[in-house]
Design a protein around this nucleic acid. Structure first.
Lengths: 210, 210, 210, 210
DNA sequence: GATGAATGAGTGTTCATTCAT
DNA sequence: GATGAATGAACACTCATTCAT
């Protein structure tokens, strides 16, 4: 791989033309498929290109290197998660604090489960690429959404909603994947969701009381 | 790397003689140093051996694989964490539930911080090696210790202390590393510890009330 | 080497384009040269590639393994031998039994001598790769050709031409290389050929008489 | 391996003392066992030493090289073969030419079959070590024995018994192993023996007639 | 004499990346 | 723009051999 040097994080060309967009999408899709079926270790640019039905050369026309490709995939995944949380928060303005926790946990879990196969691999990519910056950005983005909801909660009155939101977001992005690894049966998944909801709700209430 | 096949998880020979023990220790230490200074990607057996002041051959005399070596390092790290939690729990029998959360979080965080540099890398190793089994074992081991403490708590009376312990352990092993990534200043670390403690304590109390 | 697993016996891609064909040929030629000049033990993929004027990577683009490469060379050699025998048999339908032996021996010997330098090494490859199957196939192929000629011989009348053909083919592929080792001067070669011819002819006549 | 340099062909010390002899024998036996069970490729000095119940160091006390060890094993095997032929020839002075062929073929085949498992491997060793000299010596030794018998045959009268003996010996050492590879059922073995005997006998008679 | 820990050169193989066509 | 053949640095791992104990 050879990381360490400055990363070009975005596709080389903004693909405006239809053919380009289709190609880029095919490459994205192929990457995810290879990741799911062969694993990160066996993912290599040739394989991705073949699965995408293009040549390696073409792949390199759109992504400066393997890193950039993986980074882009991670970016997409995190955007989906953050979007899910924002949707959950946006849908419920003026809610009771009681329900915030549940809504957020559910939204995140649902989004994760949708790509359950991929999620651990993506976390590995995040570490491999040292993509803390990207993750931090996403966590902060989610934290902002949560903070807004907390602030507008009917029975809010938190001293420092920002801190709470940060804590929750970090716990979410950190804990849930850990739970995902472990979850096998749907029953376990439901129980996990219940416990996480309880934990988050009681955390919020603890801060609310004073 | 070449994964997929059964892993020999233990050193090839039980190093009884003094020279052997010293060699194995040197290799362990070198692995951690290389991990910290060069990162997992740039870690290769030659480099580890050189840093340990031995030859590659010697390294392979004690570890069947690169995988086995990394696995062993991970094993050690997790053992330290689990030990820290057990100590914290064992030290405080008959405590108030209030203090359990704090003790556990503090113990874990302190142990993690001691190898802060290493921790993210070790989690990556865990994924790379698909060492879920090992992690699960460790989480369960910690859960058992926590459960014991919860059960013997003066003001306990939990319906299902096992479930609580499991949740806490999973959240601990999942969340704290996520926090570690983010923590830079000691001040942040202290704040993180405070919030986690609050979260865990309120989670326990929530279950206790009914 | 690392044998034991299923062998991919054919080049990875069917080299249709001119450049590819040239490359594959160069690799073949280089393998033979290295085999002749350095011996099997010192043959390694790097050396072959260098001698072929290509990079190792290119070599591995056309041959999955070192094994596959050697196997292909052996395949070629055996095909030449079998072809020589078939030609000799096909050229002489309706011959006297007397001349069959001579024709076959001469054809085989000439083909062997053409690659005299290589022949012992190739037999070693055969053992190294456990290519008995391939050799058996070749021997059988030659036996079929000999049998056909024996059956169509004017003064034939053999009870079991198949058995005779098998014996001759086996003796040929087994004995001649043994002779080749020993042969140094052309004079010796001629004498060897004479004696082998006599042996084969008298063997055939012995079966014919009854 | 690194061949090409002058070979020390004999054990370093002439093992006179009982313990030494036992050790050398154990190493010999171990070598053959490893050869049979693991194959030449996986034979390495450590494994041999372990199987022999001694340390590598000890092995190297008696054999200068891996080569020397293998060479010694080959030497033993060939000595057994040559001995068998000499016995067969010596047992039958003043025989009919008719029976010489049969006796020789039978003797050789019997000796080969006794170590059938090993024989192909040994031929590979011969090539690996470039032990033509040793084989030539053995073939000549057998040729001498055969020549003596031919000369003393009642109905002999060969023009050049030496040439005949050479041819037979070469055919024997060359062909029989080739047959051995192919032979599976005892029935096949018997048929092979019959055909070889016929071939050799008719060859001798062909030379006798004029 | 015996031991076995240590050595390190050597080899097969992979794969990100380039560039002539 | 697209192709895919070619590159070659990099790495995991083996094993004959030595030598301090």
């Amino acid at each position: 791989m050879g990381n360490g040097s400055p990363l070009p994080l975005t596709p080389r060309k903004s693909p405006r033309q239809g053919r380009s967009i289709a190609t880029v999408d095919a490459i994205f899709e192929a990457t995810i498929q290879v990741l799911a079926s062969d694993g990160l270790i066996r993912l290599n640019t040739t394989r991705v290109a073949r699965r995408a039905g293009v040549s390696v050369g073409t792949l390199y026309q759109y992504f400066a290197n393997k890193q950039a490709l993986l980074f882009a995939v991670l970016e997409r995944h995190l955007a989906v998660l953050a979007g899910a949380i924002e949707d959950a928060c946006g849908d419920n303005p003026l809610v009771m604090v009681e329900t915030v926790a549940e809504a957020v946990v559910m939204a995140y879990l649902r989004a994760q489960m949708a790509q359950a196969e991929l999620s651990p691999t993506l976390y590995r990519i995040a570490l491999e690429l040292d993509a803390r910056g990207l993750i931090d950005l996403t966590v902060r983005r989610s934290a902002r959404a949560i903070e807004a909801t907390l602030s507008s909660a009917i029975d809010g009155g938190f001293a420092d909603p920002g801190l709470l939101a940060q804590t929750l977001a970090a716990a979410l992005y950190g804990t849930v994947p850990a739970f995902c690894h472990r979850v096998l049966s749907p029953a376990d998944g439901i129980e996990a969701q219940r416990q996480l909801t309880i934990m988050f709700r009681s955390y919020l209430l603890a801060h609310q009381r004073p």
